[in-house]
């Protein structure tokens, strides 16, 4: 499969159709890969594909360090493609300005990350070329089993859980930096007039931060769980984001990242919307 990807990358670069191929190369530590930006057809052999291709490369589509290189092709797993779809929906990139090299995927990590057993996009939903055997989407999965389980706890237990978890946050904002959806030029966390979010990493400031970020991702978070992967203090951020995703799905029947044409619930209006929050 990697041979085909390299071949395609070479072709795209040689023809000038793209200026850069965003993919993975082997990392320096064992069982790692590193994002790589191939600009010359001679270098395509650096590209690799394996179960350590964790990073969601979609974030590089809007980072100026990479976008300045010119039109990209991007190696993307199903969950990464969901991020690209939302970026297209939100007008951050145009569909025709990116060549998606979709890869079918059975899971990353050893053992696989928590998102993988409940994945229904093992075959990406959007691509220009597909690499690997098509894998039919799983059907009998409950994506929110862990959220359901967590909701069974009493409010006090949940409070205590989050107090403990969020007290660990060091306010590095890595969860934001890695997130392909966090593309705001000036994040609310960096605004100081007014200071919406206290910059200190005491538990109160940490609540501000993590809850505000979760809200800003409601209906947009594509569940790639990069935030949870990178958090240096292992805060289970997916529980927050996915709790909101569950509500959005229940209320609007919407899951972000599946359809470039679908109107996102928070930028769309229907007369039959319940609007109970206004009452």
């Amino acid at each position: 499969m990697i041979e085909q990807i390299r071949e395609k990358a070479k072709e795209l670069l040689a023809s000038g159709e793209v200026k850069v191929v965003i993919g993975y190369e082997n990392g320096g530590l064992p069982e790692t890969t590193r994002p790589v930006f191939i600009t010359s057809p001679d270098e395509v052999d650096r590209l690799v594909w394996n179960k350590y291709c964790y990073a969601n490369l979609a974030t590089f589509l809007w980072r100026k360090e990479v976008s300045s290189l010119g039109k990209p092709a991007i190696v993307a797993k199903g969950c990464d493609v969901k991020a690209i779809v939302v970026l297209i929906q939100e007008s951050q990139i145009k569909r025709e300005d990116v060549v998606i090299l979709g890869v079918t995927c059975t899971g990353v990590g050893d053992p696989p990350l928590s998102k993988c057993p409940i994945c229904d996009v093992n075959t990406p939903r959007e691509y220009d070329c597909l690499f690997g055997e098509e894998i039919p989407p799983k059907t009998d999965i409950n994506k929110f089993a862990d959220v359901d389980e967590f909701e069974k706890k009493s409010p006090e237990e949940r409070w205590e859980f989050w107090e403990e978890q969020l007290s660990k946050c060091v306010k590095c904002y890595a969860c934001r930096q890695v997130c392909p959806m966090c593309y705001c030029e000036i994040c609310i966390a960096d605004k100081n007039q007014p200071q919406w979010i206290e910059t200190s990493s005491h538990t109160r400031g940490n609540y501000h931060w993590n809850l505000v970020r979760a809200w800003h991702l409601a209906g947009r978070c594509v569940d790639c769980l990069e935030c949870e992967r990178v958090c240096p203090v292992d805060i289970p951020l997916s529980l927050v984001n996915r709790r909101l995703a569950k509500s959005v799905k229940a209320r609007f029947g919407y899951e972000p990242g599946y359809d470039t044409e679908a109107p996102p619930p928070f930028t769309d209006f229907k007369p039959q919307d319940p609007e109970e929050f206004i009452k």
Partner: peptide, 9 residues
């Protein structure tokens, strides 16, 4: 350093 996302970790 092009792959660095400035996460500060």
């Amino acid at each position: 350093t092009r792959m660095c996302i400035g996460c500060g970790i």
